[in-house]
Write a protein that binds this DNA or RNA. Sequence first.
DNA 1: TCGAATTTTCAATAGATCCTGAAAATTCAG
DNA 2: CTGAATTTTCAGGATCTATTGAAAATTCGA
Lengths: 195, 195
Amino acid sequence: MALSPLAQRFVLHFGEMGSRWGINRTVGQIYALLYVSPAPLNADQIAEALGFSRSNVSMGLKELESWRLTRVQHLPGDRREYFATPDDVWAIFRTLAEERRKREVDPTLTMLRDALIEAPTSDDDAHVQARMREMHDLIDLVTTWFGDVQRLESSTLQQLMRLGAKVVKLFEFKDRVGSGAALRGRSASAPAKVS
Amino acid sequence: MALSPLAQRFVLHFGEMGSRWGINRTVGQIYALLYVSPAPLNADQIAEALGFSRSNVSMGLKELESWRLTRVQHLPGDRREYFATPDDVWAIFRTLAEERRKREVDPTLTMLRDALIEAPTSDDDAHVQARMREMHDLIDLVTTWFGDVQRLESSTLQQLMRLGAKVVKLFEFKDRVGSGAALRGRSASAPAKVS
DNA sequence: TCGAATTTTCAATAGATCCTGAAAATTCAG
DNA sequence: CTGAATTTTCAGGATCTATTGAAAATTCGA
């Protein structure tokens, strides 16, 4: 199970990158290894390929599982568990985005909401709350929007992204044609909630 | 310069959150403090308000500066530097996104591109490259798109986001009306680059 | 149910990062 | 140019995180 130089570069890069977010080197490397592996691997194979202790790999796999980034399967006549990553990169992207939202964004939104229902007790606090509200509204808008488009079919989402800033043209186009018929519900010209 | 309980909660939360990404507690707290502060603060005020050493604050401010998240100003007749965050939350959002792309995404894209121009030397490596290409194409599409829409006016961007998944309706609307006139250049039905 | 195979837990330590105080460097009024 | 005010640097200690080996727990075929 020696890694090819190509695979090794990929794996090491993810190890380094991992530590640039909160995730640690081991976890990053294990994920990268599983991602490029042509077949699922068991924990011993991972430990050997990466030169980590068996127990470290066990920890790392548990962490990846908590991010919903692994699939587990069994081979016939083998009791060991074999690990792989989901195949579809768009599915992986969605999962990652969702988990990060849950861990990094939601707690902040909650804190902001809690703080915003209290009555300010001074002018300074009124200012603090005003700033908190600006942040809250931005985060709220961005995450709601993100959750919204994320639920689209991968192919639709890709179309949309390829369009890039040109969606705005569509926008103007619609206004020119002058029909709101295609857009029921939340309107493009709803009153601004964000500063 | 004692913090109100409200401001304190905000500041402490950002300290904790900070460490959930790569950024450390000190930096998170300093940023949060500046963000809600009604007036710019000098380093001593920050150190006192947060209970950090002067030198720690100096480090933290340098880090924030490297993220382009501070503005520096001088008060007349005072040699000390006074720090604030940019006012516009959308500008802050853009800056953060750009910096994170530079630090976290671009190096990965570079690594992937470099690895993808090499000729695979085995079947396994061919598979590794195929997986790397999937990842590359996804990241490339998402970051290009993001850079694209990020350059829009804040108000346009907000409109777009409020629309949410309903942009797709616009899409269908355009197809029904049957005109490509509004969409020159990169087309919505361009051949797929991504799996 | 037993026991071998496998996985998980956990206390101990290795390693990384943070934070400080003291000293060096810089800035600027006079 | 001088020296006080201010900021930055940096080595060392404090604190936090990662990693390991050994032991406990679990799983499952016989």
